[in-house]
């Protein structure tokens, strides 16, 4: 019994140390985001499951430096918002989590001239957006944008 206990304890310690090593490695290197099939898209969210998309978008919105200038393709729901300061109409792609109670979105700026509302889908309709990821800081608030976006 004592031996089994020692083995169990050793196993647990080994697991903890291994995981610790794995975590440490991750923070040292630049996060490697899996590259896609060379179609020009660096981060293809349309290929991921629902939970993964939400988690990935959360990662992009909270640690945006890793994704700067990467081409991102995402599918979500179309939404608009009026900027309080400039009065400008902004377009966004919104992702909901599995329980549909939480949502996050990323603003996109279309590449070509598009007129609202004719060239856009209805609010809440599905939209696929591909664009270059960038972000700006407004005090402590991070604003993420997909520039030069093409929509489907």
């Amino acid at each position: 019994m004592k031996r089994i206990r020692m083995i169990l304890f050793a196993l647990i310690c080994t697991c903890l140390i291994t995981m610790n090593g794995a975590c440490r490695k991750t923070t040292v290197q630049n996060v490697s985001i899996p590259e896609n099939n060379g179609s020009g898209v660096d981060v293809d969210l349309t290929d991921l499951s629902g939970n993964m998309v939400y988690a990935q978008v959360y990662d992009m919105v909270t640690s945006p430096e890793k994704y700067r200038r990467k081409t991102v393709k995402m599918r979500g729901l179309f939404a608009t918002r009026t900027d309080e300061k400039t009065g400008e109409l902004q377009y966004g792609c919104v992702i909901q989590d599995a329980l549909a109670c939480c949502a996050q979105g990323i603003q996109f700026i279309p590449a070509e001239e598009m007129r609202y509302p004719d060239d856009f889908p209805a609010m809440g309709d599905e939209i696929t957006v591909t664009g270059e990821f960038d972000f700006t800081m407004d005090g402590n608030v991070i604003n993420c944008i997909l520039k030069g976006a093409e929509t489907e």
Binding site: N51, Y54, A55, Y58, D97, A98, L99, C101, C102
Partner: peptide
């Protein structure tokens, strides 16, 4: 419900 907290 936990939602996606574990993945974030």
């Amino acid at each position: 419900f936990g939602s996606t907290s574990i993945l974030t």
